[in-house]
Amino acid sequence: MTREGRVRAVPPALVPCVGRPPEPEDVAPMVIYLLGDKSRHITGQVYSVFGPKISVLSKPVEARSMYTTERWTPDSIEAHIDAGIGQEPFLSVFKEYDEAVNAAIEAEPAK
């Protein structure tokens, strides 16, 4: 048992949707862990954090790339990422969640 609760590895089909969108507070601990020395053995992995669920994705494929002649900076990434490589379509779980939220909002009576 950890301070955060029980941790188990389970197949994706057995994990129910958590019922809320991911928030920065959900993702930040994973980012901090991956930036630290204790994760230096991890390389080339793609992780997803969705509420209480952390997943590793299998066999990600490079779709597009962008290059620079200098080192990337946060500002240069911001300036080029949308036109340079863009984004892949939303994962279906996010799309389904967004559709459910939008439907619930539309169903609410006007105040």
Score class of each variant (00 low, 15 high):
Glu25Ser: 14
Pro89Arg: 06
Gln87Asp: 08
Lys59Ile: 01
Pro89Tyr: 04
Pro29Ile: 03
Gly5Asn: 07
Trp72Ser: 10
Arg6Asn: 10
Gly5Thr: 01
Ala9Gln: 13
Tyr33Ser: 08
His80Pro: 00
Asp26His: 15
Asn102Phe: 09
Val61Trp: 05
Lys53Thr: 15
Arg8His: 10
Met30Phe: 07
Tyr33His: 13
Glu99Met: 10
Lys111Ile: 10
Gly19Asp: 03
Tyr67Pro: 00
Thr68Ala: 14
Leu35Val: 00
Ile77Gly: 02
Thr69His: 08
Ile32Trp: 09
Glu96Arg: 08
Pro12Tyr: 05
Asp37Glu: 15
Leu14Cys: 05
Arg6Phe: 10
Ser55Asp: 03
Pro29Trp: 05
Pro60Cys: 01
Val27Gln: 03
Lys59Leu: 14
Glu96Ile: 02
Val10Ser: 05
Pro11Gln: 03
Ser55Gly: 09
Arg6Asp: 05
Thr68Cys: 08
Thr68Trp: 02
Asp75Ser: 13
Lys95Asn: 03
Gly5Glu: 03
Ser58Met: 09
Glu88Trp: 08
Asp75Asn: 10
Tyr67Met: 08
Val10Arg: 11
Asp75Met: 11
Gly51His: 01
Ser76Phe: 04
Gly36Glu: 00
Arg71Trp: 03
Lys53Ser: 08
Ser92Val: 13
Ile77Phe: 13
Arg64Ser: 06
Thr73Cys: 07
Glu25Lys: 11
Thr68Tyr: 01
Tyr67Ala: 13
Ser48Met: 13
Val15Asp: 01
Glu25Thr: 12
Ser92Lys: 13
Arg6Gln: 08
His41Pro: 00
Asp82Gly: 03
Glu70Trp: 04
Lys59Arg: 15
Gly5Ala: 04
Ala79Ile: 00
Val56Trp: 02
Thr2Met: 12
Val10Met: 11
Gly86Ser: 05
Pro74Glu: 10
Val93Asp: 07
Asp26Leu: 04
Val15Trp: 08
Glu108Arg: 15
Val10His: 02
Arg71Gly: 06
Ala103Arg: 14
Phe50Gln: 05
Glu88Gln: 14
Ser55Tyr: 01
Arg40Trp: 02
Pro21Val: 00
Pro16His: 08
Thr69Ile: 06
Leu35Trp: 04
Gly86Cys: 08
Tyr67Val: 13
Lys38Asn: 07
Ser65Arg: 15
